[in-house]
Amino acid sequence: MTAISIVVPTAGRESLRALIGALGLLPADAELLVVADHARRGPAAARNTGWQEATGEWVVFLDDDVIPEPGWCTRLRADLDVGSEVGGVQGRVRVPRPTGRRPTDWERATIGLEHGAWITADMAYRRAALEAVGGFDERFPRAFREDAELAHRVRRAGWELRRGRRTVTHPVRPESPWVSLRTQRGNADDALLRRLYGRDWRQRLEIPPGRRARHALITAAAAATVAAALLPGRWHRVAAGPALIWAVGTAEFAAARIAPGPGNPAEVAAMAATSVLIPPLAVGHWLAGRWRWRAA
């Protein structure tokens, strides 16, 4: 049996070449398994395929868009020199900052990975811990929350999780100005977590509070404004209150996203437009998820 198995799920991104090049020649007691997700089942399913085929006592999950630092394998061994009570050890993630300007909204989202708990950008688990909990929950189809959910089950099964000292660099990949709209699909996954773990699921999984309650208020105010405007006569006057809530809520949301950014016209325009669309999209995906997972 090999001591360490490195599992990398991939959808074929070019960044995989840089990762494999940075790993270099692996020690004799380590193996690398690259799992091509041709069927687009998602990273959770791909990682399950990888660790179930692996032979190592420890399984290290790396995302295909990270670059291990020089000496990563040596530091990995040191990180895994832990007692039998430890079921997982997380590596550190470093995200390069842009030079000469403040980061965009998308860049700040990637920078947030540096503070993420138990994220599989670089996360090692004992094979015994994965076997004990059944691995990743494949109902999570995106690279979103599936790692935090696994970590919660591993700890609930009695294992400890620790942070190590090895480091990977996570470059910010190029994205469309509208990427924040696509990421709202993750609200459906949040609905599954709410169903599985109750109202305090964020605290249980160490996930920071979100803005969904505010998004719901803005969306309700927008719907009430449109409904009142379509009704005849005096109902038009009723629209003033919800319209004010809608406008103020949207303006606050846009300002919170624009203020820390670079402030260039393209970023401001994208933040203004997406800030109008994100609240109803977030609420819509949340409600769709609540319905889909009502019997989970």
Rank of each mutant, 00 (worst) to 15 (best):
V7D: 12
T10Y: 12
R13D: 09
S15T: 15
R17K: 10
A18V: 12
L23N: 04
L23C: 08
G24P: 06
L26I: 08
P27A: 05
L33G: 06
L33E: 07
R41N: 08
R41T: 04
A44N: 02
R47F: 08
N48M: 02
A54H: 00
G56V: 03
I67R: 15
P68I: 07
P68Q: 04
E69C: 04
P70L: 04
W72P: 00
A78M: 05
L80E: 07
E85Q: 14
G87T: 04
R92E: 03
V93D: 07
P96S: 05
A109M: 12
A117W: 15
I119G: 10
A124R: 02
Y125N: 11
Y125R: 10
L130V: 09
P141D: 05
P141N: 01
P141I: 12
A143L: 13
A148G: 14
A151L: 11
V154S: 00
G158R: 06
G158N: 06
G164A: 08
T167H: 10
T169C: 13
T169R: 13
P171E: 06
R173S: 14
V179Q: 13
R182T: 11
Q184R: 13
L192S: 03
R194Y: 05
L196G: 05
G198N: 11
D200Q: 09
W201C: 05
R204N: 00
E206H: 15
I207C: 07
R212F: 12
R212P: 00
R212A: 03
A216L: 14
A216S: 11
I218R: 10
A220N: 01
A220I: 14
A221M: 02
A222V: 02
A228N: 11
A229F: 05
L230P: 01
W235F: 13
H236Y: 01
A239L: 04
A239V: 11
A240H: 14
G241M: 11
A254P: 01
A256I: 06
E267I: 04
E267K: 08
V268M: 10
A269M: 12
A270E: 10
V276R: 08
V276T: 06
I278D: 12
L281D: 10
V283A: 03
H285R: 10
G289M: 05
W291E: 07
W293K: 00
A295F: 08
